[in-house]
Amino acid sequence: MNDYLWTPPSIASLPVRGETRRLPVNRLFFVGRNYHAHAVEMGRPVDKSVERPFYFTKSPQTIVESGAITPLPPQTTDFQHEMELVVVIGRSGFRVPPQDAHALVYGYACGLDMTRRDLQLAARDKGRPWDLGKDVEASSVLSEIVAMPGIVLEHGEIAMTVNGEIRQRSDLGKLIWNIREIIADLSLFYHLQPGDIIFTGTPEGVGPVVAGDVIEGSIAGVGSIRLTIGPSA
Rank of each mutant, 00 (worst) to 15 (best):
E51A: 15
V87A: 11
F54G: 08
W130M: 00
D125M: 13
R117L: 14
T20E: 13
D100M: 05
R91V: 01
A101E: 00
E65N: 02
V88P: 08
A109L: 04
Y55V: 07
V105G: 05
P73D: 02
D78W: 05
D118F: 05
G107Y: 01
Y106C: 03
P98L: 01
V105A: 04
N26G: 08
F29I: 00
L72R: 06
R33L: 15
P97L: 00
N34M: 06
G18V: 02
L23W: 10
D100K: 06
F54S: 15
R95Y: 13
D47W: 01
F29G: 01
V105S: 01
G107V: 02
K58T: 07
G18I: 07
G111D: 03
N26R: 14
Y106T: 03
L23P: 00
P45K: 03
R128V: 00
F30R: 04
V46S: 09
V64E: 08
G93Y: 10
L72S: 08
P24A: 15
R91W: 00
D113W: 08
D78V: 07
R27S: 11
Y106R: 06
P53R: 02
K126N: 14
Q75F: 07
R33D: 08
S59Y: 11
I89G: 10
V87F: 06
F29L: 04
A109N: 08
P60F: 02
A103Y: 01
Q61I: 06
I63T: 11
T70K: 01
D113H: 12
G127N: 05
L85K: 09
P45E: 02
R128F: 13
A39D: 09
T57M: 15
W130C: 02
L28H: 06
S66W: 05
F79A: 10
T20C: 01
A39Y: 02
F79Q: 09
R117C: 12
S92H: 09
